[in-house]
């Protein structure tokens, strides 16, 4: 699993590569939280284009970050989820909390 965090003004873009399960959930949570705490972040973008698998451990990280962003009146977006990952996101109902977009460009175009 590779995690790439990029701060563009007040937007944190997190690109994840690999499988989002128990093994990587804690590392991902720590890395995102340390940025959210130390920087003035208003938008959090999770780029899942290269995520091939997700289970409830991965969903837990997403829901937890949504709650944190929501508490500071920020926004969160998910982009590029594959059909297999999207199915799990829909199943959990996360899509009702965090909007899903095809690409980062789609968010810029809003």
């Amino acid at each position: 699993m590779e995690i790439d965090l990029k701060l563009i003004r007040n937007t944190l873009v997190v690109k994840i590569q690999g499988e989002l399960d128990l093994l990587v959930a804690e590392k991902l949570r720590r890395e995102i939280d340390s940025k959210i705490q130390s920087q003035q972040i208003k938008n959090l973008v999770l780029n899942l284009e290269k995520v091939s698998f997700i289970d409830s451990s991965g969903l837990g990280v997403i829901i937890g970050r949504y709650k944190r962003m929501n508490a500071k009146n920020g926004h969160m977006y998910i982009v590029g989820a594959s059909p297999a990952v999207e199915k799990i996101l829909f199943f959990s109902g996360i899509n009702k909390l965090v909007p899903l977009y095809r690409s980062e460009q789609d968010i810029i175009n809003i």
């Binding site: 399960d21 128990l22 698998f53 289970d55 409830s56 451990s57 297999a84 799990i88």
Partner: peptide, 20 residues
């Protein structure tokens, strides 16, 4: 392939439950 993806999620959940 869809069936296989679902089976992977199921096993992941059961094994993760045991660990956590």
């Amino acid at each position: 392939l869809e069936d296989i993806e679902e089976i992977k999620v199921v096993v992941s959940e059961a094994v993760s439950n045991s660990i956590i």
